[in-house]
Simulated assay, not measured.
Amino acid sequence: MKEGILMADNAELRFGIIGTGWISQKFVRALRAVDNVSVVAVYSRTLSKGTSFVKTISEHIIVYTDLDQMLLDKQIDAIYIASPNSAHYTQIISCLTHEKHVLVEKPAVVTSNQFLKIEKLLQKKPNLYFMEAMKNIFLPSFEQTAALIPQLGPLDGANLIYLTSDLKKSDLQNLQRLPSVLSRKAARGVLYDLGVYLISSALNWFGTPIKVEYYPKLIDNPDGADYYGHGTLFYKTFNVDILIGNMTSSQAPSEIYGSQGTLVLNHPTHLENITLLKKDNTTTDIKVPAISNTMMPEIEHFTKIIFSENYEEMQRLLILTKTSTNILQTMRENAGFDFP
């Protein structure tokens, strides 16, 4: 281990957390099932929310209401960032400047320029590790899907669908302030909340597209982001269509199809059920490992990168994050909506 980052080969990776929402609670539950990691502190803008978070997770940890003070805490090796998207960039810079490893919720940042500045800072700090918490690409079933794709023969295309009815338009009536999930000020919207998963899947399974398009429906509000959209990733010999929304549910599966067969996925990110349909009419249901908390594999991967000092793997994932950031920004800007 590099001195000053992890003190010994058998040391724990000690996390501080930024954010007290449900995703941070799930993160702590996942940490408990992973070896050699712990949480020692949380940052919240208010003491009451921080204290409530500590009670909810039943952990004896320090609550900070000053982020700089938490980043000065020598007990903390790494920071998990689960704040609104619009806050990620400045918090990542602060964490790296204070010599902390960073695991940041997707999307890591919202502009290519932000990513380039982070990349330059990381080049000056080769003892630090950074990873975007894109949980779907670390699931064992994701690797299973990737291994099955060659059996499909030359690809003809794919449909990736992520539709959920978590929100209702009626809930938004007469609101003076939109919930952050639909706010452009918070750099949110369905493309950055759900579409980012589908884009990361496509990049891993099919590579970088030649061009992209996106057609959103926006909330009728000056601060309104997209709540529904369909887009296309164009490749040389096939296209990948994505359909996303957080006010519309669907039971339709996602599919990847080729000249020799089709892969049917019950969900393109959860991947709990995978079926291989071959051209000869044989059907194979793929056994998928059950995971109690889908955040566990990403924590294990991040920890392994740090303990094994696998700088090459960090660089591989950085390229994926960089490409995803570029695609999201291109889709959003070409669709005619921007973030303040």
Score class of each variant (00 low, 15 high):
residue 174 N to Q: 12
residue 138 F to W: 15
residue 155 L to T: 06
residue 159 N to F: 11
residue 213 E to Y: 06
residue 160 L to Y: 04
residue 193 D to R: 11
residue 188 R to Y: 03
residue 175 L to F: 04
residue 139 L to T: 14
residue 156 D to C: 09
residue 184 R to N: 06
residue 179 P to Q: 06
residue 159 N to W: 14
residue 174 N to F: 07
residue 207 G to V: 03
residue 189 G to R: 06
residue 164 T to S: 11
residue 134 M to I: 15
residue 135 K to T: 15
residue 179 P to I: 03
residue 152 L to N: 09
residue 137 I to H: 07
residue 214 Y to T: 06
residue 145 T to M: 13
residue 200 S to A: 08
residue 190 V to L: 04
residue 154 P to R: 11
residue 196 V to P: 00
residue 176 Q to D: 13
residue 196 V to W: 03
residue 145 T to A: 11
residue 169 K to W: 12
residue 184 R to S: 07
residue 196 V to Y: 02
residue 168 K to I: 01
residue 142 F to W: 14
residue 170 S to F: 03
residue 205 W to K: 05
residue 209 P to G: 02
residue 141 S to A: 15
residue 160 L to K: 03
residue 140 P to K: 15
residue 154 P to S: 12
residue 151 Q to T: 15
residue 209 P to Q: 08
residue 217 K to T: 09
residue 164 T to Y: 07
residue 172 L to I: 02
residue 188 R to Q: 15
residue 142 F to A: 12
residue 146 A to P: 08
residue 212 V to T: 09
residue 211 K to F: 10
residue 142 F to M: 15
residue 160 L to F: 07
residue 141 S to L: 13
residue 201 S to W: 08
residue 159 N to E: 15
residue 177 R to S: 09
residue 159 N to Q: 14
residue 170 S to V: 05
residue 160 L to G: 01
residue 202 A to M: 04
residue 151 Q to Y: 15
residue 194 L to Y: 12
residue 211 K to T: 12
residue 157 G to S: 03
residue 185 K to M: 09
residue 152 L to Y: 06
residue 173 Q to Y: 10
residue 180 S to R: 12
residue 157 G to L: 04
residue 160 L to A: 01
residue 189 G to S: 02
residue 139 L to D: 10
residue 205 W to L: 08
residue 199 I to K: 03
residue 176 Q to S: 08
residue 181 V to A: 05
residue 135 K to Y: 15
residue 172 L to G: 00
residue 212 V to A: 00
residue 173 Q to I: 08
residue 188 R to T: 03
residue 140 P to M: 15
